[in-house]
Design a protein around this nucleic acid. Structure first.
Length: 913
RNA sequence: GGGCAGUUAGCUCAGCGGAAGAGCACUUCCCUUACAAGGAAGGGGUCACAGGUUCGAGCCCUGUACUGCCCACCA
């Protein structure tokens, strides 16, 4: 550990070493411990199909920051890792593999196919978990869960049975969102609506002659539709009951074009008379609104599209067997040919797509299992409303509430094979058994839900039971995650559940707020009688530099693994953290990693410099901290550090990780490195061994503090540097790994505002000299002299006392301080902060250039005088603004006046010369 | 159609009631023994627009315009 540090920070040699070390020392695992407060986080389980993308990296980094922060604060943190089986998505992946072999899942059969699925999951399912290790995540790997493992599966079955027995789960033939490609039903929320410019076709439905044609003004009624193919299943035409145009047609019959079926004109208030023609074709089997109308008017439901998206036999010749879009085309042609197509208008409208494969969703009638959500939603809303679940940022509470409020029953059955099979069993002889085939039912036994496969029918004792073929929506198991990972439904002796539940915070992106977060709240309340998490921290979505969502298909993804490879994991983490304003999406480009990488290198080199010098000192037996006496810059940097610690702690406590990152960056680079290290060099290079120790002590103390503040964000580099500080005894008190060191605590009362003000004044002088140097092209290395006039005696004395700071930083050979020293000939000038500064530059100075510069300054001063005067002359300002503001303004004016006078005097003298 | 964000330097974003900030990019100078992945200095902004509140407004209020996202059964 005592070896010299390399000249640049090389993440590749460091990261693996420390992660292994953390694992070896078992510092991430957590056990219930009544003497410590728990802090629990469950990871949003990534799909087993996944490889780590930027969204995962951001999400995991945010959680790791919080968890590491809490660990250092002395909590007993538990962060549970795991993966989601990812139902449809994962099955699609394996089906694609099969397809490449020229096979379908049906060729294999359910059992063989599932074997194949498990094989795949065993081979590839842990990839993303390995990648989370690479990211440095402090997850308790001994608790790794998978939604389809034994623990989680038991919870899923138990939850289903409980809900079933409570009467909240029911089966029914409903209109559901069907994906013809994935061949399964989807929940409402799994349908993605996309605005598309479609067509609105106006079609003529001819009225049936009743022998009293003259009674009608019109011979036909025009309906408007975006989906003409569904007309084959029309069983009515609906108009609004108060629509004068159609009032007298209600009750009459029209002839369905192409088919010739006679259907009634009905009145329903669901119709908006102002849209289209005000007359709507009603297809109860293929449209949710029409379905409802159909229920109200007892209309037939004619199913004309099948589960593959093809027209059924019921659609009639010549359409039967055609794909739905081909049928649409043909129908339009046929209507056109019969002069029944009156108008084709462009019509932007939202079209539903499958969230897994983007196929256009087809509303179809089918038998599905539903979960009644009304009561659960009500309780969830209550929790959000009364703050039992608190959102960060809280602007997400309202959308969450309104989603819960408008929630309809959840379709939980899926017609795929990969997932938790629905634990419902039918008596084989029952009329209810959907899998009876040609068998003649002999009983009416109701199906039962059961954790174990029942040996016989609980109703008739029949020995043959058939399990439902469907599996549960993958989000059903996800919804149980916060307690299923801890072994629910085991409650009695479940120490984990007692200790760790409810979890402390859930960290996630807003794209799965409803899909997942809201449902966990519902399920947590239902089964645990307590919210699953107290806080929800919502971070943004990672976008590319053009603001587009990163996706493989767009080809704009930045691979986090590549970034880690190229810039280091800490650079990736810092970069993500810095841009992660709560709730706001972030645009990421390659540049941001570069600056984070540079920051890491800066930390590295500052540390290298300090350690190099620390080692060159003979400390005696121990490394002694805080050796007296301290001087101004020590008080200053300690004060700035104390401010920093307070601000970073507040930021992390309120999930403002971005602010924490920026605060540390700013302090470390612009204060600690740019000023303090430079000033400390005076003592480090000096001959006074005691002073040298003081400077190095403070440098080390603050470095150790900053490393700890930074550790949650940049775990690897901080640990590596920490290890290089191994021989310093203060470290022993703070733990063998920085991950278990204590979070810095400071006494805010010790913040020395005078020291801060004084340093600011000195910095201003240094900057002024440097500016003059730069403007007059004086090389940085060339020693020059300066003369300062200061009117205030205490400031003068302060500068005298710290002249060395100024001389060292501004590279001044001599510095003369006085109150009314004359302007040296051929000198450049600066006025400000109560001082007048001259830099004699005989032979170097360009007097014309200097005059121009001073004139500009003079004009600025004049403008300032005007501004301040105007403000002070405003009676309302003096009367209403706080006294401190008025005083500040007066001081500003006074300074500007002095500045202006000094500049003008000098300018006059220069003119006269 | 509803809702929620955003609009500040060329780019990415901080600041959210009392003198316009950072990083990157740009210009000039510097390989000064921590760091050229660096140092010093500099140029660049009527803080989207219009009203209002206030002694005072990027900052609060009300509209408007764009941009993005979420929700929604106008066929």
């Amino acid at each position: 550990m005592n070896k010299e540090m390399d000249k640049t920070y090389d993440p590749s040699v460091v990261e693996q070493k420390w992660y292994d070390s953390w694992l070896k020392n078992d510092i991430f695992s957590s056990h219930p411990d009544s003497t410590r407060r728990p802090f629990t986080v469950v990871i949003p389980p990534p799909n087993v199909t996944g490889s780590l993308h930027m969204g995962h990296a951001l999400n995991a980094t945010m959680q790791d920051i919080i968890v590491r922060f809490k660990r250092m604060q002395g909590f007993n943190p538990l962060w549970v890792p795991g993966t989601d089986h990812g139902g449809i998505a994962t099955q699609n992946v394996v089906e694609k593999l099969l397809k490449a072999e020229g096979k379908s899942r049906h060729d294999l059969g359910r059992e063989k196919f599932l074997e194949r699925m498990w094989q795949w999951r065993t081979e590839s399912g842990d990839t993303i978990l390995m990648q989370l290790r690479r990211l440095g995540c402090s997850l308790d790997w001994s608790r790794t869960r998978f939604t389809m493992d034994e623990t989680c599966s038991r919870a899923v079955t138990a939850a289903f049975v409980k809900l079933f027995e409570k009467g909240l789960i029911y089966r029914g033939k409903r209109l559901v969102n069907w994906c013809p490609r994935c061949h399964t039903a989807l929940a409402d929320i799994e349908v993605e609506h996309e605005e598309e410019v479609g067509k609105l076709w106006h079609i003529k439905y001819v009225l049936k002659s009743r022998g009293l044609i003259s009674l009608f003004k019109k011979k036909y009624i025009v309906v408007a539709t975006t989906r003409p193919e569904t007309m084959l299943g029309d069983t009515a035409v609906a108009v609004h009951p108060d629509d004068k145009r159609y009032k007298d047609l209600i009750g009459s019959m029209v002839v369905l074009p192409l088919i010739g079926r006679e259907i009634p004109v009905i009145a329903d208030t669901a119709i908006d008379p102002s849209f289209g023609t005000g007359a709507v074709k009603v297809t109860p089997a293929h449209d949710p609104v029409d379905f409802e109308i159909g229920v109200r008017h007892q209309l037939d439901r004619i199913e004309v599209i099948d589960f593959h998206g093809k027209m059924t036999a019921a659609a009639g010749e010549p359409y039967a067997g055609l794909d739905r879009f081909a049928a649409r085309k043909k129908i339009l042609n046929d209507l056109e040919a019969q002069k029944l197509l009156l108008e084709t208008a462009n019509h932007p409208h939202a079209v539903g797509h499958c969230y897994r494969c983007a196929t256009v969703i087809e509303p179809l009638l089918s038998e599905q299992w539903f979960l009644k959500v009304e009561d659960m939603s009500r309780r969830a809303m209550q929790s959000v409303a009364d703050g039992a679940v608190k959102f960060y940022p809280d602007s997400w509470a309202k959308p969450c509430l309104s989603w819960l409020e408008n929630l309809r029953d959840w379709c939980i059955s899926r017609q795929i094979w990969w997932g938790h099979r629905i634990p419902v069993y039918y008596c084989a002889s029952s009329s209810i058994n959907p899998y009876a085939g040609t068998r003649t039912p002999t009983t009416d036994c109701a199906p039962c839900a059961s954790v174990e496969s029942p040996a016989k029918c609980p109703h008739c004792g029949g020995a043959e039971m058939v399990q439902d073929a469907d599996v549960l929506d993958t989000w059903f198991s996800s919804a149980l995650w916060p307690f299923s990972v801890m072994g629910w439904p085991e409650i009695a002796d479940n120490a984990d559940l007692k200790y760790y539940y409810p979890t402390s915070v859930l960290v996630t992106g807003h794209e799965i707020l409803y899909l997942w977060v809201a449902r966990m709240v519902q399920m947590g309340l239902e089964f645990m009688d307590a919210v699953p998490f107290k806080h929800v921290y919502i971070h943004g979505i990672v976008r590319d530099k053009f603001g587009k969502k990163m996706s493989k298909s767009l080809g704009n993804v930045i691979d986090p693994l590549g970034v880690m490879e190229k810039y280091g994991t800490d650079a990736l983490r810092f970069s993500l953290t810095q841009s992660a304003a709560p709730g706001r999406d972030m645009q990421l480009s390659e540049d941001s990693f570069l600056s984070a990488r540079n920051f890491a290198n800066k930390i590295w080199n500052a540390s290298r410099f300090i350690m190099m010098n620390v080692r060159s000192v003979d400390w005696g037996k121990d490394f002694i901290m805080a050796v007296w006496p301290l001087e101004l810059c020590d008080h200053w940097i300690l004060s700035e550090y104390r401010i920093l610690v307070g601000e970073v702690t507040v930021a992390l406590d309120s999930y403002n990780m971005d602010a924490a990152a920026r605060l540390i960056y700013e302090f470390f680079w612009s204060k600690y490195c740019d000023w303090y290290i430079e000033l400390a060099k005076i003592r480090i290079a000096g001959t006074d061994a005691e002073k040298r120790k003081v400077a190095l002590s403070i440098l080390t103390e603050i470095l150790a503090g900053v490393l700890r503040l930074l550790h949650p964000i940049m775990p690897f580099i901080t640990e590596e540097i920490w290890s290089h500080m191994a021989e310093l005894d203060f470290r022993a008190k703070k733990g063998p790994t920085i991950a278990l060191s204590s979070w810095p605590e400071v006494n805010p009362e010790k913040i020395d505002t005078t020291a801060i003000a004084r340093m600011r004044a000195l910095q201003e002088i240094v900057t002024a000299v440097r500016t003059i140097r730069s403007e007059m092209n004086v090389p940085p290395g060339k020693l020059i002299t300066a003369v300062i006039n200061v009117s205030a005696p205490e400031t003068r004395e302060m500068i005298e006392q710290h002249r060395q700071y100024v001389q060292y930083l501004a590279k001044l050979e001599t510095l003369t301080v006085g109150s009314a020293l004359p302007r040296p000939p051929q000198s450049a000038m600066f006025v400000g902060g109560g001082i007048e500064l001259f830099v004699p530059l005989a032979g170097i100075i360009d007097l014309e250039k200097e005059k121009t510069r001073l004139k500009k300054e003079s004009a600025n001063a004049a403008a300032e005088i005007e501004r301040c005067t105007a403000k002070l002359n405003n009676a309302d300002f003096s009367a209403r603004a706080p006294a401190s503001e008025v005083a500040k303004m007066k001081a500003r004016l006074a300074e500007a006046v002095v500045k202006s006078n000094n500049l003008d005097t000098t300018l006059k003298a220069m003119e006269g010369r």
